[in-house]
Design a protein around this nucleic acid. Structure first.
Lengths: 364, 364
DNA sequence: CGCATCAGCTAATGCGTATTAGTCGGAAGG
DNA sequence: CCTTCCGACTAATACGCATTAGCTGATGCG
């Protein structure tokens, strides 16, 4: 046989040892120069320069796995999605987070590793241990609605730096960033009240997501803050908006003095859709006769319609915030038992064109 | 000081060694049972069971970093994009590639590392060595029209597995996958000719990307195949379509007997935009009086407009094909001097609504 | 002048796993 | 009865890097 090469025939990918040989120093010195050298060991400028030069010539890049194993940093941030990150369906919104994540990570000198949790086959799938791949990175962002709590709990318990994008209660001790739906919703209500609306109503779907609950809470608080009444029926919760929110219903509410309808944004956008068509069906003009507001961003298929008043979820900013939180965690890991911080990012008010002062008319 | 623990305070996380101790076997045996055991070494069923049991009790989870270090491969595919920011926004045409890339990579058990010309560990875009960071992955996909050849040449020379998405001539020996623009363009011309058009013209931007060249070649070949003349001026190449392609120009061409205008799709979409507005400005109706075709997919901001006739670039499929090519390369590296393979993926014809038979009128 | 000090390196290890050479007791074969 | 072979493991080592002990020659100091 031939001269046995160092296993996988040195396919490019130079090692520190090769850099060392070229620079005429030891591997240790190379590590010292190129790595952190936290120990503050003194290296002569000339030597240092030679090493850097050699590294450049060879195009040396540290092996993340080796670095990681040697208990050091990778400069890699993981992004684990429980569904495909680049969804085929464009309406799916995860990619919006990613733009913020990407920018912020780049700005901080981190590269991103995409771990795809879902989909078929390979290392993916719900295969046990799928989530554990993220240990290759220094820390990881979590993206997606449905998350297997158990494996997560393990990572959290081990003190692996994790930040969830989107509020998450479940694994105790998990850091997260989320949009401040409550404040934003209250703000929308405040805006309506400021214009003179006295009868304001919320239509929400039958869904227990924290995001929905937060919106409702904000809505109610907004009413209270504006000194508006919140009689029974102020929050309408329905599983089938299309069926229950119709022209007759709108007319009835209008007759009772309701001049503004607020809908929550959901995956489907059904609440808003039902509301707009019901109002149109009732022959009421928007915003001259009734005002409409949407607690969230309109879904993509509504792009032709007049822009709803409401708020926008700053997804990119959320992504960026998550990266900041994560890198902070990396720089300064939690002490034993310390509660992780969480971040609420505020949503921007979107003026839109579906809200105006209420019509003047006889008091009901 | 306290009893010095094995460095990073045994954060729970059991090792194979601990499993081994509990099961009363060696670490090797544990690795054999829990790992792949590709070598087909025989282990007694009883032993195997004991190991599995021990692993379960301790909650053993393999360390991916160690695993990858030992296997001399990271299961990471890089995606390097030569754009300012990583094309994570759907609006960006590259996004479509990513959906295919992600799917195929996941299916093959690879994770993705995202590199941007500008990220790269803070090294900055054109910074020498920015591209070297991709060496951290097992292989890398290249995305973008204009690519700095020099740094690439290095990687290619080192035998680092690379696949370009989009045809690329430049660094000799670079593998690529590309859309078959030539055939698709010829097909569009054939379609026009079949409807009776005799005067057909191509508007392209002033750009030397292979993608542009391929389209022009296909266009010219299409004319030849249909037996149509290709006098001087049949291919209009302009750096400023908006300025040079105007109503007067269109009228003049129309007077000369041109009944169909073909534009190439580019990053900017300028050629097509200029063409449509010039035709509109000339008062010519599409497709009754003139036919328009677009060699590519309309950019997202044109989604309101009537659908252009032309062809679609199967971006997701291209991405997937690129991943396949790359993983093949990984499994079976090129021998010294061997030419890499390349793959052409065919584009689908898109009927659209901007093409019709030419109007009947007196011969010019 | 002898010895501690220090600057500037290098040799040796460890991280957790996969792989490659064994090792060892017994069954088969001559 | 002595090899050979085989089944079932284990010891040793490599992977690439960071870190921790040195180690060496020059300088300082009393």
């Amino acid at each position: 046989m031939t001269e046995r090469e160092p296993r996988a025939a040195r396919r490019g990918r130079p090692r520190q040892a090769e850099v060392a040989r070229l620079a005429g120093v030891s591997q240790t010195t190379v590590s010292l120069v190129l790595g952190g050298n936290k120990q503050g060991i003194v290296i002569q400028e000339a030597t240092r320069a030679r090493v850097l030069e050699a590294a450049r010539t060879l195009g040396y890049v540290p092996d993340p796995a080796a670095r990681r194993l040697a208990a050091a940093r990778n400069n890699l941030l993981g992004v684990f999605s429980f569904t495909a990150t680049f969804p085929t369906a464009v309406e799916h919104s995860y990619y919006r987070f990613l733009v913020g994540v990407e920018q912020e990570a780049a700005a901080r000198g981190y590269d991103l590793v995409l771990f795809t949790g879902s989909s078929s086959g390979g290392a993916g799938a719900g295969a046990p241990g799928a989530l554990d791949r993220v240990r290759l990175a220094d820390g990881c962002l979590l993206l997606g609605r449905h998350v297997p709590t158990e494996p997560l709990r393990r990572l959290v318990a081990d003190g692996f730096p994790l930040v969830s994008i989107g509020r998450r209660e479940e694994p105790e001790g998990l850091a997260w960033v989320g949009a401040d739906y409550a404040t934003a919703s209250a703000e929308v209500v405040g805006h309506l009240a400021g214009l003179g609306h006295r009868g304001v109503l919320l239509v929400r779907e039958d869904d227990d997501a924290p995001a929905s609950a937060d919106r409702q809470r904000g809505f109610v608080e907004g009413l209270a803050a504006a000194g508006l009444p919140a009689p029974d029926g102020t929050v309408v919760r329905t599983a089938r908006p299309a069926a229950e929110i119709d022209a007759a219903w709108v007319r009835a509410r209008y007759a009772e003095g309701v001049t503004a309808f607020v809908a929550e944004e959901t995956d489907t956008g059904d609440a808003w859709r039902a509301l707009t068509s019901a109002v149109a069906g009732a022959g009421l003009r928007v915003p001259d006769e009734v005002s409409l507001a949407l607690l969230g961003s309109p879904s993509a298929d509504l792009s032709g319609q007049p822009e709803p008043t409401g708020f926008d979820i700053p997804r990119a900013e959320l992504g960026a915030t998550a990266v900041r939180l994560l890198t902070d965690l990396l720089a300064d890991p939690l002490a034993e038992g310390e509660r992780p911080s969480a971040g609420l990012v505020s949503c921007g008010f979107r003026p839109g064109v579906t809200v105006a002062p209420p019509p003047r008319r006889a008091a009901p």
